[in-house]
Amino acid sequence: MIIDCNANLGQWPFRRTAYSTPDQLVERLARVQIDHAWVTSLDAVMLKDVTAANEPLAEAVADHTQLTAIGTVNPKWPAWGSDVEACAEQFGMPGVRVNPNYQSWTLEEPVFADLLAAARDLGLFVEIAVRMTDERHHHPLVMVPPVALSGLLANALEYSDVPIVVANAKNAEAGSVARDSGGDLPDNLFFELSHFESVGGVQSVAENIGVEHVLFGTHAPYFYPEAATLKVFDECDFSEADLEAITHANAERLLAGD
């Protein structure tokens, strides 16, 4: 059983995206034995009213039991609280994603705590996308630095009953948060592995931050999904128990709120 906690549907505005529909994505992920994926909307990242992408996303995956829609919200947008409510109550989503760098806010601002409070009330997890693409190759008119993770740890501790997923973070970014925590990350904090690099890098990061904090993710179809499966199953030498944790048990525990 493999749950991909970081897949996408739709089009990225700066490159035509293959496998952009639910049918295509399900087929592409099945090629590498990925059974289920949490999907966000690529279209939502550059929309001003990001929530306009949520209803279409929910409708798109409605007939695909292999996909779970994750809505996008912007806590700097007027009346954003109703958007979070819609994700939970109207669309039945288990979590919401934010792109603070594309939405012009930081994790140290009060809006992040406000979002976590709203998520707690509605039983949602919150996912932070640190980046969407390599900063070195952005469109020259749309250069977006990665999300600084300062402020993450304090809020994760304050809202310890809200699962927080950090997606698209690199080894050093995950390691920095783990170091700030004194090697004891809060139970509610998870890092998705699509951007973990270096030889044996996934295993190194897992040993550093704790395997119980690692979620399997591909960032497909922007990335080849084989990158994640080959890193986890071929390049690394995880125990069966660790593979279980990374590929699905941690994600299931996150959803169960255990």
Partner: peptide, 18 residues
């Protein structure tokens, strides 16, 4: 570009290509 990059993530570009 190992060891900075993963062997796996890079060979995936070929093995996963259509």
């Amino acid at each position: 570009d190992a060891p900075g990059r993963s062997f796996a993530s890079q060979i995936a570009k070929v093995r996963g290509a259509d």
